[in-house]
Amino acid sequence: MMSPFKCRAVYVLFILAVCTPLACTGKDTQPQKDASVLIERARQGEVVGVDEHQIKQVIESFKDEKVVLVNFWATWCMPCVEEFPDLVKLHQTYQSKGLEVIAVSADSPKSVDSKIKPFLERHGAQFLCFVKDTKDDGAFINAIDNEWGGEIPVTFIHAKSGARAKSFYGKQDWETFVAAVEPLLD
């Protein structure tokens, strides 16, 4: 039988072994891991449900790596539907220059197969697509942007530093998107 002293020593060693790698990184790695799993699933063509914390983690995971354009839309929103082809074109034109396009649908998570995926396929969207899946719409809206009232479409553009470079409330045209994105790219 192990003595109380030995037992305590084993416990301390165990804690050190688990905690030291985390402490060395200087930050909590769990959100990054969660975000990378969500991104990977989205890259495989899945339309993943995300709450306010997850979508923030996804956006923040591109910090110091890419310019990020996040668009909130829905299949039932006509201005969003009209704007969507420009997002597809933006992604095609600028992805090689460091632009990541993320679309977050406000459709019901239950309509992924019946509405969202057919829409994305029809438009040839190859970027990351998620669907809002939250118990609190207000918290979701506020987590993304305090100024945003919840109207869609809305588009937020983040510079490589992660800082918000532009916020567009309402439908935009191709020229506006290009003028906002190009100066931020390499």
Binding site: W76, C77, P79, A106, K132, D137, G138, I141, N142, E147, W148, G149, G150, E151, I152, K166, S167, F168, Y169, G170
Partner: peptide, 19 residues
């Protein structure tokens, strides 16, 4: 706050909000 469809107004907004 609330998600929803934009009210379709009769006249075009004179100012488009952008920050």
């Amino acid at each position: 706050k609330v998600f929803g469809c934009t009210i379709k107004r009769v006249r075009k907004e004179t100012k488009r909000r952008s920050t």
